[in-house]
């Protein structure tokens, strides 16, 4: 019994110290977080994280390069021939297998939207060039087809499709 009583008094005495320490630790953490969080993208940067773009002025067979999150993005209005070519390729021929359907939005197959940095070392490929009627990267000779998939050369992967959706037939929201 006596040990238990002793134990209780010790606990009671320590409680204040433990509580003070715990509250202090919570306070310290609450101070540290904003000091780190200020490193995150600020409100003016986040406001441009998602952009809306009207594709209607782009005629068939034309492409434009726009900027999204500081990166160049290709918006390509493909011809029926390019779509047909892209869909005719068997997946087994591809270095980074992906169907053309998976790289465009259903009902908007003519619109190909990709981040314009070569997946090899980041150069911007030249449009409508190379051996596959798509893009050719002049830096190290990567060839992409009309779906932006890697076909030949050192690049390991297809050109990256950013997250996007069509808000209407002509208005696309990227990001």
């Amino acid at each position: 019994m006596s040990t238990q009583a002793e134990h209780t008094t010790t606990n009671r005495r320590d409680f204040l110290f433990v509580a003070t320490g715990a509250v202090g630790a919570v306070g310290a953490a609450a101070v540290v977080w904003p000091l780190i969080n200020q490193l995150n993208p600020d409100a003016s940067t986040l406001a441009l994280a998602s952009i809306q773009y009207d594709v209607s002025p782009i005629a068939e067979g034309q492409s434009v390069t726009i900027t999204w999150r500081g990166l160049p993005v290709f918006v390509r209005h493909r011809t029926p021939k390019e779509i047909e070519e892209a869909r005719a390729v068997p997946l087994s021929d591809l270095k980074d297998p992906a169907t053309d359907e998976s790289r465009v939005k259903e009902g908007h197959e003519q619109w190909l939207i990709m981040i314009a940095n070569c997946t090899h070392l980041g150069c911007i490929p030249t449009g409508q060039a190379g051996d596959f009627d798509g893009w050719f990267c002049p830096c190290h000779g990567s060839h992409y087809d009309s779906s932006g998939r890697i076909r030949k050369g050192p690049a390991p992967a297809n050109l990256v499709v950013p997250p996007y959706e069509f808000l209407s037939d002509t208005l696309v929201q990227i990001g």
């Binding site: 904003p34 000091l35 200020q38 409100a43 940067t45």
Partner: peptide, 13 residues
């Protein structure tokens, strides 16, 4: 002003 307006927690810092 950019710090005060846009940076996360910038007004208080």
């Amino acid at each position: 002003e950019h710090i005060r307006r846009d940076i996360n927690g910038g007004r208080v810092i």
